[in-house]
Design a protein around this nucleic acid. Structure first.
Lengths: 239, 239
DNA sequence: CCGGCTCATTGATCTAGATCAATGTTGCAC
DNA sequence: GTGCAACATTGATCTAGATCAATGAGCCGG
Protein backbone atom coordinates (compact mmCIF):
# COMPACT_ATOMS: atom_id res chain seq x y z
CA UNK A 1 0.00 0.00 0.00
CA UNK A 2 1.37 3.40 -0.96
CA UNK A 3 2.08 6.21 1.45
CA UNK A 4 -1.05 8.34 1.45
CA UNK A 5 -2.49 11.02 3.66
CA UNK A 6 -6.00 9.98 3.00
CA UNK A 7 -6.54 6.64 1.38
CA UNK A 8 -9.09 4.18 2.68
CA UNK A 9 -7.88 1.91 5.45
CA UNK A 10 -9.92 -0.89 3.99
CA UNK A 11 -11.45 -1.26 7.44
CA UNK A 12 -13.46 1.90 7.64
CA UNK A 13 -16.64 0.51 9.10
CA UNK A 14 -15.85 -2.55 11.15
CA UNK A 15 -18.79 -4.23 12.80
CA UNK A 16 -17.57 -3.12 16.21
CA UNK A 17 -15.39 -0.33 17.64
CA UNK A 18 -13.29 -3.08 19.20
CA UNK A 19 -12.10 -4.07 15.72
CA UNK A 20 -11.53 -0.54 14.44
CA UNK A 21 -8.08 -0.13 12.89
CA UNK A 22 -8.04 3.54 13.81
CA UNK A 23 -8.81 3.02 17.49
CA UNK A 24 -5.26 3.11 18.85
CA UNK A 25 -4.63 6.54 17.25
CA UNK A 26 -8.00 8.07 18.01
CA UNK A 27 -9.66 9.41 21.14
CA UNK A 28 -11.31 6.01 21.59
CA UNK A 29 -8.05 4.53 22.86
CA UNK A 30 -8.92 6.10 26.23
CA UNK A 31 -11.82 3.68 26.69
CA UNK A 32 -11.96 0.09 27.90
CA UNK A 33 -13.63 -2.58 25.78
CA UNK A 34 -16.80 -2.27 27.85
CA UNK A 35 -16.91 1.49 27.56
CA UNK A 36 -16.26 1.17 23.84
CA UNK A 37 -19.56 -0.66 23.63
CA UNK A 38 -21.33 2.30 25.22
CA UNK A 39 -19.67 4.72 22.82
CA UNK A 40 -20.55 2.50 19.89
CA UNK A 41 -24.21 2.79 20.84
CA UNK A 42 -23.92 6.58 20.40
CA UNK A 43 -21.94 6.45 17.18
CA UNK A 44 -23.25 6.38 13.67
CA UNK A 45 -20.82 5.13 11.02
CA UNK A 46 -21.01 7.61 8.17
CA UNK A 47 -19.76 7.86 4.62
CA UNK A 48 -19.12 11.38 3.39
CA UNK A 49 -19.11 12.01 -0.34
CA UNK A 50 -16.21 13.93 -1.90
CA UNK A 51 -16.70 17.71 -1.66
CA UNK A 52 -19.48 17.53 0.88
CA UNK A 53 -19.20 19.25 4.24
CA UNK A 54 -19.01 17.81 7.75
CA UNK A 55 -19.06 21.25 9.40
CA UNK A 56 -19.91 24.68 8.02
CA UNK A 57 -18.27 27.88 9.21
CA UNK A 58 -20.63 29.98 11.38
CA UNK A 59 -23.31 27.29 11.33
CA UNK A 60 -24.52 25.42 14.43
CA UNK A 61 -22.53 22.29 15.26
CA UNK A 62 -24.95 19.35 15.38
CA UNK A 63 -22.42 16.53 15.17
CA UNK A 64 -18.88 15.75 16.12
CA UNK A 65 -16.78 13.28 14.14
CA UNK A 66 -14.08 10.75 14.55
CA UNK A 67 -12.46 10.38 11.12
CA UNK A 68 -11.79 6.75 10.16
CA UNK A 69 -10.53 7.18 6.59
CA UNK A 70 -10.01 9.81 3.93
CA UNK A 71 -8.83 13.40 4.13
CA UNK A 72 -10.86 16.38 5.37
CA UNK A 73 -9.96 19.97 4.56
CA UNK A 74 -10.51 22.54 7.34
CA UNK A 75 -10.78 26.11 6.10
CA UNK A 76 -11.85 29.60 7.04
CA UNK A 77 -13.14 32.13 4.54
CA UNK A 78 -13.13 35.92 4.82
CA UNK A 79 -16.20 37.78 3.56
CA UNK A 80 -14.36 38.93 0.43
CA UNK A 81 -13.52 35.35 -0.52
CA UNK A 82 -9.92 35.04 0.67
CA UNK A 83 -9.48 31.55 2.05
CA UNK A 84 -7.09 30.05 4.57
CA UNK A 85 -6.88 26.30 4.93
CA UNK A 86 -6.14 25.76 8.63
CA UNK A 87 -5.48 22.04 8.46
CA UNK A 88 -6.19 18.61 7.05
CA UNK A 89 -7.83 15.98 9.24
CA UNK A 90 -7.07 12.31 8.59
CA UNK A 91 -7.93 8.94 10.13
CA UNK A 92 -7.73 9.15 13.92
CA UNK A 93 -8.46 12.88 14.10
CA UNK A 94 -11.41 14.23 16.04
CA UNK A 95 -13.54 17.07 14.68
CA UNK A 96 -15.99 19.55 16.10
CA UNK A 97 -15.29 19.86 19.79
CA UNK A 98 -14.91 23.60 20.18
CA UNK A 99 -17.39 24.25 23.01
CA UNK A 100 -18.84 26.95 20.80
CA UNK A 101 -22.35 26.75 19.40
CA UNK A 102 -21.21 27.53 15.88
CA UNK A 103 -18.30 26.12 13.96
CA UNK A 104 -15.26 28.33 13.49
CA UNK A 105 -14.39 26.69 10.19
CA UNK A 106 -15.71 24.61 7.33
CA UNK A 107 -14.72 20.94 7.16
CA UNK A 108 -15.07 19.28 3.75
CA UNK A 109 -14.22 15.83 2.48
CA UNK A 110 -11.56 15.99 -0.24
CA UNK A 111 -12.06 12.45 -1.49
CA UNK A 112 -14.36 9.78 -0.03
CA UNK A 113 -14.33 9.97 3.77
CA UNK A 114 -15.63 7.67 6.45
CA UNK A 115 -16.22 8.77 10.02
CA UNK A 116 -17.97 7.88 13.25
CA UNK A 117 -20.57 10.54 13.77
CA UNK A 118 -21.97 11.49 17.19
CA UNK A 119 -24.73 13.88 18.06
CA UNK A 120 -22.84 16.65 19.81
CA UNK A 121 -25.23 16.81 22.76
CA UNK A 122 -25.13 13.07 23.35
CA UNK A 123 -21.36 13.05 23.08
CA UNK A 124 -21.01 15.90 25.59
CA UNK A 125 -23.30 14.09 28.01
CA UNK A 126 -21.29 10.91 27.68
CA UNK A 127 -18.13 12.94 28.18
CA UNK A 128 -19.38 14.06 31.60
CA UNK A 129 -19.33 10.45 32.74
CA UNK A 130 -15.89 9.59 31.34
CA UNK A 131 -13.00 11.63 32.77
CA UNK A 132 -10.45 9.53 30.89
CA UNK A 133 -12.05 10.50 27.60
CA UNK A 134 -11.96 14.18 28.58
CA UNK A 135 -8.31 13.77 29.43
CA UNK A 136 -7.65 12.15 26.07
CA UNK A 137 -9.45 14.97 24.28
CA UNK A 138 -7.33 17.46 26.20
CA UNK A 139 -4.21 15.75 24.92
CA UNK A 140 -5.60 15.85 21.38
CA UNK A 141 -6.47 19.51 21.73
CA UNK A 142 -3.02 20.37 23.11
CA UNK A 143 -1.46 18.54 20.19
CA UNK A 144 -3.59 20.40 17.65
CA UNK A 145 -2.61 23.64 19.36
CA UNK A 146 1.05 22.71 19.03
CA UNK A 147 0.60 22.02 15.30
CA UNK A 148 -1.23 25.34 14.84
CA UNK A 149 1.61 27.16 16.60
CA UNK A 150 4.15 25.57 14.27
CA UNK A 151 1.99 26.72 11.38
CA UNK A 152 2.05 30.27 12.78
CA UNK A 153 5.84 30.27 12.46
CA UNK A 154 5.56 28.89 8.94
CA UNK A 155 3.06 31.53 7.82
CA UNK A 156 4.72 34.40 9.65
CA UNK A 157 8.39 33.82 8.97
CA UNK A 158 9.20 31.20 6.35
CA UNK A 159 9.94 31.45 2.62
CA UNK A 160 7.87 29.75 -0.06
CA UNK A 161 10.38 26.93 -0.50
CA UNK A 162 10.58 26.33 3.27
CA UNK A 163 6.80 26.23 3.46
CA UNK A 164 6.51 23.62 0.72
CA UNK A 165 9.35 21.52 2.15
CA UNK A 166 7.75 21.69 5.63
CA UNK A 167 4.41 20.71 4.18
CA UNK A 168 5.80 17.61 2.46
CA UNK A 169 7.82 16.62 5.52
CA UNK A 170 4.86 17.12 7.84
CA UNK A 171 2.51 15.05 5.68
CA UNK A 172 5.05 12.26 5.54
CA UNK A 173 5.47 12.32 9.32
CA UNK A 174 1.73 12.16 9.90
CA UNK A 175 1.45 9.17 7.59
CA UNK A 176 4.07 7.31 9.55
CA UNK A 177 1.50 6.27 12.16
CA UNK A 178 -0.11 4.14 9.47
CA UNK A 179 3.17 2.62 8.44
CA UNK A 180 3.42 4.62 5.24
CA UNK A 181 7.09 5.38 5.16
CA UNK A 182 8.01 5.02 1.51
CA UNK A 183 9.61 7.63 -0.70
CA UNK A 184 6.26 8.23 -2.42
CA UNK A 185 3.81 10.66 -0.85
CA UNK A 186 0.24 10.83 -2.09
CA UNK A 187 -1.20 14.35 -2.22
CA UNK A 188 -4.97 14.03 -2.22
CA UNK A 189 -5.50 17.79 -2.10
CA UNK A 190 -5.27 20.20 -5.05
CA UNK A 191 -2.56 22.81 -5.63
CA UNK A 192 -5.10 25.42 -4.57
CA UNK A 193 -5.65 23.64 -1.25
CA UNK A 194 -1.90 23.50 -0.69
CA UNK A 195 -1.52 27.19 -1.61
CA UNK A 196 -4.32 28.22 0.74
CA UNK A 197 -2.78 26.11 3.51
CA UNK A 198 0.67 27.64 3.04
CA UNK A 199 -0.47 31.24 2.58
CA UNK A 200 0.77 31.30 -1.02
CA UNK A 201 -0.77 31.37 -4.49
CA UNK A 202 -1.27 28.35 -6.70
CA UNK A 203 1.39 29.70 -9.11
CA UNK A 204 4.01 30.01 -6.38
CA UNK A 205 3.31 26.47 -5.17
CA UNK A 206 3.62 25.16 -8.72
CA UNK A 207 6.85 27.06 -9.36
CA UNK A 208 8.29 25.86 -6.06
CA UNK A 209 7.50 22.23 -6.90
CA UNK A 210 9.14 22.75 -10.28
CA UNK A 211 12.23 24.24 -8.65
CA UNK A 212 12.47 21.29 -6.27
CA UNK A 213 12.28 18.94 -9.21
CA UNK A 214 15.02 20.92 -11.00
CA UNK A 215 17.12 20.73 -7.80
CA UNK A 216 16.62 16.93 -7.73
CA UNK A 217 14.88 17.00 -4.34
CA UNK A 218 11.62 15.40 -5.49
CA UNK A 219 9.93 14.13 -8.60
CA UNK A 220 6.28 14.75 -9.37
CA UNK A 221 4.12 11.66 -9.88
CA UNK A 222 0.38 11.36 -10.55
CA UNK A 223 -1.49 12.55 -7.41
CA UNK A 224 1.66 12.97 -5.39
CA UNK A 225 5.40 13.35 -5.25
CA UNK A 226 8.35 11.07 -4.70
CA UNK A 227 11.24 12.12 -2.47
CA UNK A 228 14.61 11.94 -4.20
CA UNK A 229 16.68 13.68 -1.53
CA UNK A 230 14.60 13.36 1.61
CA UNK A 231 17.41 14.54 3.87
CA UNK A 232 17.82 17.77 1.95
CA UNK A 233 14.07 18.42 1.90
CA UNK A 234 14.06 17.90 5.66
CA UNK A 235 16.92 20.33 6.00
CA UNK A 236 15.07 23.05 4.06
CA UNK A 237 12.00 22.35 6.19
CA UNK A 238 13.99 22.62 9.42
CA UNK A 239 15.15 26.03 8.18
CA UNK B 1 -7.88 52.62 35.79
CA UNK B 2 -6.81 52.69 32.16
CA UNK B 3 -7.43 49.94 29.63
CA UNK B 4 -4.33 47.80 29.73
CA UNK B 5 -3.39 44.38 28.50
CA UNK B 6 -1.01 43.79 31.30
CA UNK B 7 -1.16 46.16 34.22
CA UNK B 8 -1.15 44.90 37.77
CA UNK B 9 -4.51 43.98 39.19
CA UNK B 10 -3.44 45.37 42.50
CA UNK B 11 -4.50 42.01 43.96
CA UNK B 12 -1.82 39.81 42.53
CA UNK B 13 -1.02 37.76 45.59
CA UNK B 14 -4.05 37.57 47.80
CA UNK B 15 -3.67 35.60 51.00
CA UNK B 16 -5.99 32.90 49.66
CA UNK B 17 -7.13 31.62 46.24
CA UNK B 18 -10.67 32.29 47.43
CA UNK B 19 -9.94 36.02 47.30
CA UNK B 20 -8.09 35.99 43.97
CA UNK B 21 -9.43 38.59 41.56
CA UNK B 22 -8.43 36.46 38.60
CA UNK B 23 -10.21 33.33 39.76
CA UNK B 24 -13.45 33.72 37.77
CA UNK B 25 -11.49 34.00 34.49
CA UNK B 26 -8.91 31.32 35.21
CA UNK B 27 -8.94 27.54 35.27
CA UNK B 28 -9.49 27.74 39.04
CA UNK B 29 -13.13 28.67 38.51
CA UNK B 30 -13.77 24.94 37.99
CA UNK B 31 -13.04 24.22 41.66
CA UNK B 32 -15.18 24.53 44.77
CA UNK B 33 -13.96 26.57 47.74
CA UNK B 34 -12.77 23.39 49.45
CA UNK B 35 -10.90 22.15 46.40
CA UNK B 36 -9.41 25.60 46.00
CA UNK B 37 -7.74 25.05 49.36
CA UNK B 38 -6.13 21.86 48.06
CA UNK B 39 -4.89 23.63 44.94
CA UNK B 40 -3.56 26.49 47.04
CA UNK B 41 -1.41 24.03 48.93
CA UNK B 42 0.28 23.08 45.64
CA UNK B 43 0.64 26.62 44.37
CA UNK B 44 3.53 28.95 44.88
CA UNK B 45 2.79 32.65 44.33
CA UNK B 46 5.61 33.96 42.16
CA UNK B 47 6.85 37.32 40.97
CA UNK B 48 8.59 37.28 37.62
CA UNK B 49 10.99 40.10 36.79
CA UNK B 50 10.66 41.90 33.45
CA UNK B 51 12.49 40.06 30.65
CA UNK B 52 12.93 36.84 32.58
CA UNK B 53 11.55 33.58 31.27
CA UNK B 54 8.81 31.32 32.62
CA UNK B 55 9.40 28.66 29.97
CA UNK B 56 12.25 28.11 27.53
CA UNK B 57 11.81 26.63 24.06
CA UNK B 58 13.14 23.05 23.86
CA UNK B 59 13.89 22.94 27.59
CA UNK B 60 12.16 20.60 30.05
CA UNK B 61 8.96 21.96 31.55
CA UNK B 62 9.32 21.93 35.34
CA UNK B 63 6.47 24.24 36.20
CA UNK B 64 3.10 25.29 34.92
CA UNK B 65 1.69 28.75 35.60
CA UNK B 66 -1.54 30.54 36.18
CA UNK B 67 -0.89 34.18 35.27
CA UNK B 68 -2.36 36.63 37.81
CA UNK B 69 -1.04 39.94 36.46
CA UNK B 70 1.24 41.38 33.79
CA UNK B 71 1.85 40.34 30.20
CA UNK B 72 3.83 37.32 29.00
CA UNK B 73 5.20 37.02 25.47
CA UNK B 74 5.12 33.55 23.89
CA UNK B 75 7.55 33.10 21.02
CA UNK B 76 9.27 30.54 18.83
CA UNK B 77 12.68 31.07 17.29
CA UNK B 78 14.14 29.41 14.20
CA UNK B 79 17.78 28.41 14.35
CA UNK B 80 18.79 31.32 12.10
CA UNK B 81 17.21 33.82 14.49
CA UNK B 82 13.89 34.53 12.79
CA UNK B 83 11.28 34.90 15.51
CA UNK B 84 7.52 34.45 15.57
CA UNK B 85 5.55 35.66 18.57
CA UNK B 86 2.71 33.16 18.87
CA UNK B 87 0.75 34.97 21.55
CA UNK B 88 0.55 37.11 24.64
CA UNK B 89 -0.66 35.61 27.91
CA UNK B 90 -2.40 37.85 30.44
CA UNK B 91 -4.11 37.49 33.81
CA UNK B 92 -6.30 34.39 33.84
CA UNK B 93 -4.30 32.52 31.21
CA UNK B 94 -2.75 29.16 31.92
CA UNK B 95 0.72 28.27 30.68
CA UNK B 96 2.72 25.13 30.17
CA UNK B 97 0.27 22.28 29.81
CA UNK B 98 1.38 20.72 26.55
CA UNK B 99 1.80 17.09 27.64
CA UNK B 100 5.24 17.25 26.09
CA UNK B 101 8.41 16.97 28.11
CA UNK B 102 9.94 20.04 26.57
CA UNK B 103 8.37 23.40 25.91
CA UNK B 104 7.46 24.26 22.32
CA UNK B 105 8.01 27.96 22.91
CA UNK B 106 9.66 30.52 25.14
CA UNK B 107 7.49 32.48 27.59
CA UNK B 108 8.97 35.74 28.86
CA UNK B 109 7.60 38.46 31.11
CA UNK B 110 7.34 41.77 29.25
CA UNK B 111 6.89 43.92 32.35
CA UNK B 112 6.54 42.73 35.95
CA UNK B 113 4.43 39.57 36.08
CA UNK B 114 2.84 37.66 38.94
CA UNK B 115 1.70 34.08 38.64
CA UNK B 116 0.71 31.02 40.63
CA UNK B 117 3.39 28.46 39.96
CA UNK B 118 2.84 24.70 40.23
CA UNK B 119 5.31 21.87 39.91
CA UNK B 120 4.17 20.23 36.71
CA UNK B 121 4.25 16.72 38.18
CA UNK B 122 2.24 17.68 41.24
CA UNK B 123 -0.25 19.55 39.10
CA UNK B 124 -0.71 16.57 36.75
CA UNK B 125 -1.24 14.27 39.72
CA UNK B 126 -3.83 16.61 41.17
CA UNK B 127 -5.47 16.79 37.75
CA UNK B 128 -6.05 13.03 37.83
CA UNK B 129 -8.29 13.48 40.86
CA UNK B 130 -10.28 16.44 39.50
CA UNK B 131 -12.24 15.74 36.30
CA UNK B 132 -13.87 19.17 36.43
CA UNK B 133 -10.46 20.80 36.27
CA UNK B 134 -9.51 18.65 33.27
CA UNK B 135 -12.74 19.67 31.61
CA UNK B 136 -11.98 23.33 32.30
CA UNK B 137 -8.49 22.95 30.86
CA UNK B 138 -10.00 21.35 27.76
CA UNK B 139 -12.21 24.40 27.31
CA UNK B 140 -9.17 26.65 27.73
CA UNK B 141 -7.19 24.62 25.25
CA UNK B 142 -10.01 24.64 22.70
CA UNK B 143 -10.24 28.40 23.08
CA UNK B 144 -6.51 28.87 22.56
CA UNK B 145 -6.77 26.67 19.48
CA UNK B 146 -9.55 28.87 18.15
CA UNK B 147 -7.41 31.99 18.67
CA UNK B 148 -4.45 30.33 16.95
CA UNK B 149 -6.66 29.42 13.99
CA UNK B 150 -7.81 33.03 13.67
CA UNK B 151 -4.16 34.03 13.71
CA UNK B 152 -3.46 31.58 10.87
CA UNK B 153 -5.94 33.48 8.70
CA UNK B 154 -4.34 36.77 9.72
CA UNK B 155 -0.82 35.59 8.87
CA UNK B 156 -1.79 33.74 5.73
CA UNK B 157 -4.22 36.09 4.06
CA UNK B 158 -4.43 39.57 5.54
CA UNK B 159 -2.73 42.85 4.61
CA UNK B 160 -0.50 44.80 6.97
CA UNK B 161 -3.23 47.30 7.83
CA UNK B 162 -5.76 44.54 8.50
CA UNK B 163 -3.25 42.79 10.76
CA UNK B 164 -2.60 45.89 12.84
CA UNK B 165 -6.32 46.74 13.05
CA UNK B 166 -7.10 43.15 14.11
CA UNK B 167 -4.35 43.26 16.69
CA UNK B 168 -5.68 46.43 18.29
CA UNK B 169 -9.26 45.17 18.23
CA UNK B 170 -8.28 41.81 19.67
CA UNK B 171 -6.29 43.34 22.52
CA UNK B 172 -9.19 45.60 23.36
CA UNK B 173 -11.61 42.66 23.38
CA UNK B 174 -9.38 40.64 25.69
CA UNK B 175 -9.15 43.54 28.11
CA UNK B 176 -12.90 43.76 28.31
CA UNK B 177 -13.03 40.91 30.82
CA UNK B 178 -11.30 43.23 33.27
CA UNK B 179 -13.69 46.05 32.55
CA UNK B 180 -11.17 48.03 30.55
CA UNK B 181 -13.36 49.39 27.80
CA UNK B 182 -12.10 52.93 27.31
CA UNK B 183 -10.82 54.44 24.08
CA UNK B 184 -7.25 54.18 25.35
CA UNK B 185 -5.38 50.91 24.85
CA UNK B 186 -2.10 50.32 26.65
CA UNK B 187 0.49 48.47 24.57
CA UNK B 188 3.02 46.97 26.96
CA UNK B 189 4.92 45.22 24.17
CA UNK B 190 7.48 46.83 21.84
CA UNK B 191 7.00 47.49 18.13
CA UNK B 192 9.32 44.54 17.51
CA UNK B 193 7.06 42.25 19.55
CA UNK B 194 4.04 43.46 17.58
CA UNK B 195 5.89 42.99 14.28
CA UNK B 196 6.96 39.47 15.21
CA UNK B 197 3.40 38.67 16.28
CA UNK B 198 1.90 39.97 13.03
CA UNK B 199 4.51 38.48 10.68
CA UNK B 200 5.69 41.94 9.65
CA UNK B 201 8.79 44.09 10.19
CA UNK B 202 9.08 46.82 12.76
CA UNK B 203 9.17 49.43 9.96
CA UNK B 204 5.90 48.20 8.44
CA UNK B 205 4.19 48.25 11.83
CA UNK B 206 5.44 51.79 12.44
CA UNK B 207 4.34 52.99 9.01
CA UNK B 208 0.94 51.37 9.44
CA UNK B 209 0.41 53.09 12.80
CA UNK B 210 1.42 56.37 11.16
CA UNK B 211 -1.04 55.80 8.33
CA UNK B 212 -3.83 55.05 10.79
CA UNK B 213 -3.03 58.29 12.61
CA UNK B 214 -3.10 60.17 9.29
CA UNK B 215 -6.46 58.55 8.50
CA UNK B 216 -7.78 59.71 11.90
CA UNK B 217 -8.45 56.15 13.11
CA UNK B 218 -6.20 56.31 16.17
CA UNK B 219 -3.79 58.60 17.94
CA UNK B 220 -0.53 57.42 19.42
CA UNK B 221 -0.06 58.05 23.15
CA UNK B 222 2.82 57.10 25.47
CA UNK B 223 2.87 53.29 25.81
CA UNK B 224 -0.29 52.82 23.83
CA UNK B 225 -2.86 54.18 21.39
CA UNK B 226 -6.21 55.87 21.64
CA UNK B 227 -9.04 54.89 19.33
CA UNK B 228 -10.50 57.84 17.42
CA UNK B 229 -12.74 55.88 15.04
CA UNK B 230 -13.19 52.53 16.74
CA UNK B 231 -15.95 51.44 14.36
CA UNK B 232 -13.76 51.97 11.32
CA UNK B 233 -10.81 50.15 12.91
CA UNK B 234 -13.17 47.26 13.64
CA UNK B 235 -14.33 47.31 10.04
CA UNK B 236 -10.77 47.07 8.72
CA UNK B 237 -10.12 44.25 11.20
CA UNK B 238 -13.23 42.36 10.10
CA UNK B 239 -11.89 42.58 6.54
C1' DC C 1 -11.44 10.02 -30.94
C1' DC C 2 -13.13 14.40 -30.06
C1' DG C 3 -14.72 18.48 -27.32
C1' DG C 4 -14.88 20.64 -23.32
C1' DC C 5 -14.11 20.50 -18.65
C1' DT C 6 -10.82 21.24 -14.54
C1' DC C 7 -6.43 21.54 -12.87
C1' DA C 8 -1.38 22.53 -13.38
C1' DT C 9 2.48 24.79 -15.39
C1' DT C 10 5.05 28.58 -17.31
C1' DG C 11 6.06 33.36 -18.57
C1' DA C 12 5.82 38.59 -18.07
C1' DT C 13 5.00 42.14 -15.11
C1' DC C 14 3.70 44.42 -10.85
C1' DT C 15 3.58 45.61 -5.91
C1' DA C 16 3.21 45.15 -0.80
C1' DG C 17 6.15 44.83 2.30
C1' DA C 18 11.23 43.91 3.22
C1' DT C 19 15.65 45.82 3.50
C1' DC C 20 19.02 49.36 3.99
C1' DA C 21 20.00 53.76 5.94
C1' DA C 22 19.43 57.90 8.54
C1' DT C 23 17.13 60.66 11.83
C1' DG C 24 14.02 61.43 15.93
C1' DT C 25 12.60 60.52 20.65
C1' DT C 26 12.75 59.03 25.38
C1' DG C 27 14.56 57.91 29.54
C1' DC C 28 17.94 57.06 32.70
C1' DA C 29 22.81 57.07 34.69
C1' DC C 30 26.05 60.06 36.17
C1' DG D 1 21.99 69.13 32.44
C1' DT D 2 24.63 65.86 29.35
C1' DG D 3 25.52 61.61 27.04
C1' DC D 4 24.28 57.45 25.50
C1' DA D 5 21.44 53.44 24.76
C1' DA D 6 17.16 51.56 23.38
C1' DC D 7 13.32 52.18 20.80
C1' DA D 8 10.54 54.45 17.07
C1' DT D 9 9.89 56.90 12.86
C1' DT D 10 10.76 58.12 8.13
C1' DG D 11 12.79 57.80 3.52
C1' DA D 12 14.91 55.32 -0.60
C1' DT D 13 15.36 51.21 -2.82
C1' DC D 14 14.83 46.29 -3.63
C1' DT D 15 12.64 41.73 -4.11
C1' DA D 16 9.82 37.56 -3.08
C1' DG D 17 5.87 36.41 -4.24
C1' DA D 18 1.37 38.17 -6.30
C1' DT D 19 -1.10 39.12 -10.34
C1' DC D 20 -2.22 38.82 -15.12
C1' DA D 21 -2.12 35.97 -19.11
C1' DA D 22 -1.43 32.02 -21.99
C1' DT D 23 -0.45 27.34 -22.70
C1' DG D 24 -0.29 22.37 -21.38
C1' DA D 25 -2.19 17.85 -19.65
C1' DG D 26 -5.57 14.73 -17.89
C1' DC D 27 -9.96 13.05 -17.86
C1' DC D 28 -14.35 11.84 -18.62
C1' DG D 29 -18.93 11.64 -21.46
C1' DG D 30 -20.60 11.09 -25.73
Amino acid sequence: MSADCCESTGQSHPARCKDCAVRPFSVCAALSDDELGELQALSEPTSVAPKSALLLQDEPVQNVFNITSGCVRLSKILSDGRRQVIGFAIAGDFLGLSFQDRSNFTAEAIGPVTACRFRKKAFLNYLDTKPDLVRRLLEFSANELRLAQEQLVLLGRRTAEERVASFLTMLRARNSRFGHQGATLQLPMSRLDIADYLGLTIETVSRTFTKMVRDKLIIIVPDGIRFVDLAHVGQIAAE
